[in-house]
């Protein structure tokens, strides 16, 4: 057998270009500088512990006054209504946007990106910012919250519905086209049925997301339980605040449980 010379392994840092080395050092410097600026110092942590304990002490026991509980109950219902109706409007709005922006499905050809851009914009603006905008535009209250959830849902469902439509099987689409079906006929006959499981999963997730964000919308005056929480903190009514936090906890957990069940049911 001929003698084989095994080449030496490549150098340890052969894969590391000068540029990536510089970038690594810069990133490390940024993290270290930021640590000093915003992270809690040991001293603040030491002070914060007892303060936190005192706050929790003042939160207990939670206020269980029936009249207060009734008001919280109504606010919870309002919160869920905001989430539900906002998601519903958002879903209704998402379908045309997904249809208009999905590659291979859109009737708008090269202009499809315009619709994609609208959806991206709805998604990248944070929900609290949408809430501030709608509170300024149409006033305090639940309607601003519903509009916020609608925009949030459009940003989320508009994108994932479009992806589900793009991923729908190619062959049935071609078949229906060959049969003389219109683009819309192909969408309704082949694309939507194929994308349906994905669309349903996305919608359930959007609803879950909507409940979670509708809880905090009240902080900026857009209705729901968040408004009560802000008032309680502003007026130092910590026993009321703890009741509200517990209620929120129960609602969000219940929602996740319900959507999980639904998902399993639909599989």
């Amino acid at each position: 057998m001929a003698e084989r010379r095994i080449p030496a392994p490549p150098g340890r840092f052969a894969g590391l270009s000068p540029l990536s080395f510089v970038l690594l050092v810069a990133a490390a410097a940024l993290v270290i500088a930021s640590l000093g600026d915003v992270s809690p110092s040991p001293q603040r942590l030491a002070e914060g512990g007892p303060r936190m304990a005192r706050l929790v002490g003042r939160m207990l026991p939670p206020d269980l006054d029936p009249a207060f509980l009734a008001r919280i109950g109504l606010r919870i219902v309002e919160t869920l209504q905001i989430a539900l109706i906002g998601t519903l409007f958002g879903v209704i709005l998402s379908f045309p946007f997904a249809y208009a922006s999905a590659r291979g499905v859109t009737p708008f050809g090269p202009f499809a990106f315009l619709f994609k851009a609208v959806v991206s914009f709805a998604r990248t603006v944070p929900d609290l910012v949408w809430a501030l905008i709608f509170v300024s535009a149409i006033g305090l209250g639940a309607v601003a919250g519903t509009m916020t959830i609608m925009m949030d849902t459009l940003g989320f469902c508009g994108r994932f519905y479009a992806e589900a439509m793009e991923d729908a099987e190619e062959e049935p689409r071609e078949a229906l086209t060959a049969f003389g079906a219109s683009r819309f006929g192909v969408l309704m006959g082949a694309v939507i049925p194929d994308a349906m499981p994905s669309i349903i999963a996305t919608t359930l997730f959007a609803l879950e997301k909507a409940v979670r964000s509708s809880v905090v919308l009240g902080l900026v005056g857009a209705g729901g339980i968040g408004q009560e929480l802000k008032t309680a903190f502003d007026l130092f009514q910590y026993e009321k605040a703890s009741t509200i936090i517990l209620a929120i906890f129960i609602v969000v957990l219940g929602m996740e449980w319900a959507t999980d069940r639904l998902r399993r049911l639909l599989r």
Binding site: E169, E171, P172, E174, A175, A178, F179, G189, A190, P193, D194, M196, P197
Partner: peptide, 14 residues
């Protein structure tokens, strides 16, 4: 015209 494809091209979930 009736068109039949290589793969049956049915909509599976229908």
């Amino acid at each position: 015209t009736g068109y039949v494809f290589q793969r049956h091209a049915l909509v599976k979930r229908r």
